[in-house]
Simulated scan of single mutants.
Amino acid sequence: MDTAANYTIFLGRQRLLTAPLPDVLTYLKTKLERTHEPLLVFNDQTGRTVDFNLSGTLDEVLAREAPVSAKTGPGRPKLGVVSREVSLLPRHWDWLESHPNGASAALRRLIDEARKADPVAERRRMATLPTDRFLTVMGGDLPGAEEASRALYAGDGAAFRTLVQDWPEDVRLHALHLAAPAFEEHP
């Protein structure tokens, strides 16, 4: 898990906390462990809901769910390198392997170059999908949800703000917070 990302806890449609992972885990363990209310935790970087194993002591939960040191395994875990499978055609593998430092280094360079080529579009893309995921879970049944999603993908901040203005306050404010980079023109 990415300990640098913020996480947000919702109890129903009420936002309880937005904070880094260790703070969120501490809050969940000490204040909400025994609640039976509908509780959702969102990774604000991805917009996905996450579940945590809160069994054991707070120290055990933090060690398991937000480890301080990198896990060992293939790749370079201290650098945050994660091994995953990529499926390419043979000609793509040949092209990648012909570059200095191998296929992985070539892919990393290509991705970094693409991200730097249009930083405004990259920032918008990095905000749009997580916001849409959040909207689907928390606002999918609210009036104007589908139109708000369309406005989000169209980059129409004014329409988006208008469409969510009557939503429950915490849902509206968090959606606006997540969506803000999608509507910015400059860094």
Rank of each mutant, 00 (worst) to 15 (best):
L176A: 04
F183C: 00
G157K: 03
E147H: 14
G155P: 05
I9N: 08
Y7C: 06
S104M: 05
V68S: 06
L135V: 15
R172M: 06
H177R: 07
E97S: 10
V137K: 11
A5I: 06
G144E: 13
S69L: 13
D2P: 02
H92E: 14
P100H: 10
E60A: 15
L17A: 12
E65K: 10
L88I: 13
G12F: 09
L11Y: 05
H177A: 02
W167P: 02
H174G: 00
S55M: 13
K78Q: 10
G73W: 01
G144F: 15
T30H: 04
T72K: 10
R91P: 01
L163G: 05
P90K: 09
D156W: 04
A114Q: 14
R172P: 04
Y153W: 14
N53K: 15
P90G: 11
G75R: 01
A66Q: 11
P100V: 06
R161N: 04
V68W: 05
P119G: 07
D23I: 09
N6T: 15
L17Q: 13
L62G: 08
P74N: 01
A159R: 14
E122N: 10
D112R: 12
A180Q: 02
D44R: 08
R13G: 06
L16F: 08
L129Q: 12
E65Y: 07
F160Q: 02
T46M: 03
D156Q: 06
K71T: 13
L129F: 14
P119D: 05
